[in-house]
Design a protein around this nucleic acid. Sequence first.
DNA 1: TGGCTCATTATGTCTATACTTATTCTCGAG
DNA 2: CTCGAGAATAAGTATAGACATAATGAGCCA
Lengths: 229, 229
Amino acid sequence: MERPGTWQAIRAEALRRMRAGDWPPGERIPDEAELAAEFGCARATVNRALRDLAEAGLLERKRKGGTRVPLTPVRKATFEIAIIRRDVEGRGQRHGYRLIEDALRPPPEAVRTALGWEGGAMRHVTALHLADDRPFVLEDRWLNPALVPADRVRFETVSANEWLVRNIPYSSGDIGFLARPADASAARWLGCDAGAALLAIERTTRSEAGPITFVRLSYAPGHRMEAML
Amino acid sequence: MERPGTWQAIRAEALRRMRAGDWPPGERIPDEAELAAEFGCARATVNRALRDLAEAGLLERKRKGGTRVPLTPVRKATFEIAIIRRDVEGRGQRHGYRLIEDALRPPPEAVRTALGWEGGAMRHVTALHLADDRPFVLEDRWLNPALVPADRVRFETVSANEWLVRNIPYSSGDIGFLARPADASAARWLGCDAGAALLAIERTTRSEAGPITFVRLSYAPGHRMEAML
DNA sequence: TGGCTCATTATGTCTATACTTATTCTCGAG
DNA sequence: CTCGAGAATAAGTATAGACATAATGAGCCA
């Protein structure tokens, strides 16, 4: 347990009151000044605790309106998105990598719209990541050839996944999860039947210099992503 | 843009320096006192900005060790987990609900282990959620009959999803994402072919009084969950 | 009634200061 | 040369006070 008077202790007590029904859903709770007086601490400490709960979706706070327990809380689940090699190694397995294709191709319409790509051909890189020699995830990536030219950046030994994180870090983008049936190519590389249900992550990455990449990571059947609540 | 001297402005400037390469991956950045002097603000303000970046996985901070830019940042993607009705309504569609089954059954082994269930039969509730009269998600739930007795709590009109959020809020649990092929039942209710790839969320919920529920939400084919980076 | 302004209010944020704590570094003993 | 005690360091946190800001609501005027 935390020592009393710390913001963690106040957060825990607030949570307890919500669970116990002292602060029922929909109700407004005492304001920061009152709670600070009750707990015998500074208002900033109460603010820290309640702000933390609000960020997790467990409280709703509005200036002047006060703080209330939401009727239907919108909880937040967070995934840790590491590079694939670290993901595999974090499971205590050996990471393997195999480049399948690296060629210039006209991107499909879905990729064009997702990235807002106006130009012609993009660099299409396909690769397989292995965990203890078994297929783990299929990486299907479209790269802006102006930002990642094929004659200067090679992906034979280092995956595009890893290269991008190291060299074009901290860019913005979207991320989405979906399920898709394995097509012939995915089935072949992942060693499953065509049509098998695959968990996939699609991500677009942009910088100020323009679109960087669209990638779809298709995990081998049975893969499960754990999130923290 | 933020006015200078605010913690958001400092966070933005720190991000800019990382992107620009002023603070390259692996490097240690100036400590809080130095940055506070540079930006002409209090150390607490710098702390707020850097703590925020660290929470997002964009910085690594250690006492005495200082703050450094991670070599391979572990970014965090967060999903908003709302109750299904709100999810549907948030898309501007009409939410529909239909109870399929509500019966006492011995739970399958996977459910027993996920919940740590020692007893016999559990309450098995299956229901379909609709968006504009089209199948949206199939809810397959196992409930602790001691905590949610069938003779007192009915799910004909209010989904278990919603009832639980309102009545047993703020409990702890795990959440995981996976892809699974539609079985005969799922195919029938979701109106898709058997074997179709479904995005599913599995969640276990526990309270101090014991396990509450295990639920698997299987989304209709094509569903995509967007996360925020 | 409708809409405008202005005071009120609770949260949001910043400051200066102090103390705490985890971690690293150093230096001396064995 | 290794190990362990203790010093040094940078982040973590708490505090009192102040001001900023976004809602709300009251009162006024048309």
